[in-house]
């Protein structure tokens, strides 16, 4: 289970995360919705080690990315951070594909380097992932040759190939037209059915309705309301 407890983060005196707490189980899809500036992206960045909170605890089973104990805050060492990152994935809002690499090269870079796979094995894994995500035909394309939806799928494949236990999405439908948004919903649902825990931050209500088990409402850095998807639909 992924557990976030009393997370605080200030940017230049401005409190962006305010005692933020929530939990996410494997196989569950959790959405966080909230206005722009509520601190949603910052939350994901903290969960992926891109931003250090000022205090609080982020815990994946019994592995800590950071913890506050007896009012003392400590952050993971390099090695723990690396293990944490292996279990956690992030699909950026702007995808951040590597423009000088083909889709396939984008995907196999980390398995080769991080999981020590050889190139043949990594390529095999990558092609399998591309098949799930229905992008095999673009494996040799460069990111600049892809549409928004294809870029996103390439970015998802790049995260998936490392087989994380949890995957975060930052506004996954913001760059897509409504037609494609349906596609991403089914991809996300498919992932959670394979026991992956999924965290989506968004303000797309349709996406929330179509995918999520639970919804959290975030405002000014804290969760203001929680509901199951059934309550939410009403």
């Amino acid at each position: 289970m992924l557990k976030i407890k009393e997370l605080n983060k200030k940017f230049k005196g401005n409190l962006v995360l305010n005692n933020l707490s929530f939990e996410l189980n494997k196989g569950e899809i959790l959405s966080i919705i909230g206005k722009s500036g509520a601190g949603k992206t910052t939350t994901l960045r903290c969960l992926n080690g891109l931003e250090k909170p000022d205090s609080g605890t982020i815990q994946l089973d019994n592995l800590f990315l950071c913890k506050t104990e007896d009012e003392k805050f400590s952050y993971a060492q390099k090695k723990e951070l690396r293990i944490f990152r292996r279990r956690m994935g992030l699909v950026f809002q702007s995808f951040n594909l590597f423009p000088h690499m083909t889709v396939l090269e984008n995907i196999i870079e980390a398995p080769i380097k991080v999981l020590n796979m050889d190139k043949i094995a990594a390529t095999r894994e990558a092609l399998e992932t591309l098949e799930i995500i229905e992008l095999e035909d673009k494996k040799d394309a460069y990111p600049c040759e892809l549409s928004g939806g294809q870029k996103q799928r390439a970015a998802i494949a790049r995260a998936l190939v490392l087989q994380p236990e949890y995957l975060c999405f930052d506004e996954p439908t913001s760059a897509l037209d409504p037609e494609l948004s349906k596609g991403i919903s089914s991809i996300i649902k498919n992932l959670s059915s394979k026991d992956m825990g999924i965290l989506i931050i968004t303000h797309d209500m349709d996406l929330v309705r179509n995918t999520s088990d639970r919804v959290l409402f975030m405002d000014k850095g804290k969760i203001t309301k929680e509901s199951t998807i059934n309550e939410f639909v009403v």
Binding site: N48, R82, R85, F92, K113, V114, R158
Partner: peptide
Amino acid sequence: DKGQYEAGEVLGLSKTHIFIRI
């Protein structure tokens, strides 16, 4: 773009590897 570094970090690549390869 700093997103390029961050994408590498999130994938677990080392800083040196990110600089040289990406």
